[in-house]
Amino acid sequence: MDSIVIEALVRALSVGTPLLLACLGAILNERAGVVNLGVEGLMAVGALAAFAVASKSPDANLWVAVGAAMLAGAALSLLHAFATVTLRANQFVSGLALALIGTGAAGLLGKKFEGLPLFNKVPDWTLGSFTISPFTVAALILAGLLAFWLTATRGGLTLRSVGENPAAADVLGVNVGLTRVLAVLGGGALAGLAGAFLSLSYRSSWADNMTNGLGWIAVALVIFVGWRPLRAIAGALFFGFLYYLQFRLQGNSNVPTEVFSAMPFILVLVVLALAGVRGQAGDAPAALGRAYVRGER
């Protein structure tokens, strides 16, 4: 029984890895006051960039592929930063556009990679009778580092002040625009890393729509965990377990497979509703979603 529980936890954590990485990126964005609904597109572009580099030859450096995914995510998120910080466009509209651009571009450019072999995948690490991906370990470490950085460092305090009261931060000499742009780029890089996990480790292939809504769940997960990186670990584990349960029960139950596929998305609606009832939205940064214009109140 213990081995079954441990296996379920390990598998759930593995499935929850892209959710955790993408959620951490969204937390970084939103702590600076910028909403980014384009996580799904950033993950798709990251997954494609990683696979494109890794599938070139058997000697391709997988860690260069990971770097390419993070760079692609950051580069695409620069569009969102320019629109929302420089042009002060509506953050929600810009994020939705980014999601469409990212998934559309990845689907179009990735057609030539469909069905191609991945000569080498990122190798898993063996822990006793179980295996775990280096991406999963990295995600857990990043969650701890981000939590520490946000709460115990000057840079983290600066970023949080921009998200809470950008006018006060500006008065104290903080470059609000630059801080927000860097936060968006960092969040995009983490979303790209989540995509790299899908194409280099979890699925070890490229296919259109391989993110399958994970980016949207990650956006909702930010609210569910109250914008706290360490809580994101538990949240990702919870949704990862739902996906794991979906795979285990399909074919072993009289319930239609569509019900299992819809489970994570149904739970997103439920947890967001519960968060609203509990008033958890009050934990959001005070200036979240609002463009900053110097001199305006």
Rank of each mutant, 00 (worst) to 15 (best):
E164F: 02
V137I: 12
S133A: 13
L145S: 06
S205C: 11
S261H: 13
S3P: 01
I132G: 05
T86Q: 14
A44D: 04
P58R: 07
A44E: 06
V10A: 06
A106N: 07
G115R: 10
A89P: 01
R160M: 11
T158G: 01
A60W: 01
T86I: 08
A275I: 11
A44N: 00
G213K: 09
R297T: 14
A106C: 12
A236I: 06
L96W: 00
R31M: 04
W149H: 02
T136W: 03
A97R: 01
G235H: 01
R154E: 11
F130K: 02
L116Q: 14
D170G: 05
A89K: 06
G128M: 10
M210P: 06
L190Y: 08
A8M: 10
L98R: 06
R231A: 12
V64P: 02
V45I: 13
V219E: 00
V10F: 11
I141E: 08
L42G: 03
L98I: 13
V93A: 13
L269A: 10
G95E: 08
A284G: 07
V122W: 08
N90M: 02
A191M: 00
A12E: 01
G213C: 05
L172F: 03
V222I: 13
F82R: 11
A189T: 09
V45M: 11
V271R: 05
R31S: 03
D59I: 04
S253E: 04
M210C: 08
A8V: 06
A50W: 05
L269D: 01
S3M: 07
G110T: 13
V35N: 00
P285R: 06
L159N: 04
V271E: 04
I132E: 05
V225N: 03
A152M: 12
M43H: 05
T257N: 14
P166C: 11
L109C: 07
F130S: 01
A99T: 07
T151A: 08
T86S: 15
T211M: 14
A143S: 09
E258H: 10
G73Y: 00
A286K: 15
L62R: 08
R278L: 15
R180Q: 11
Q280F: 09
V122I: 15
G46C: 06
A273Q: 12
F241T: 00
T131Q: 13
F265K: 09
A194C: 13
G187T: 04
A72E: 02
F113Q: 14
V15W: 02
A236H: 04
G226R: 01
N212M: 09
I223A: 15
G104S: 08
I141Q: 07
P117A: 12
F92G: 10
G46N: 11
I101P: 09
I233V: 13
W125S: 14
N165I: 03
G295Q: 09
V162E: 03
Y202S: 09
A196N: 05
S55C: 12
W149R: 04
A152Y: 11
S77K: 08
V268T: 15
K121H: 13
A147K: 07
L190M: 14
N90P: 03
D2Q: 13
I223M: 12
L193Y: 07
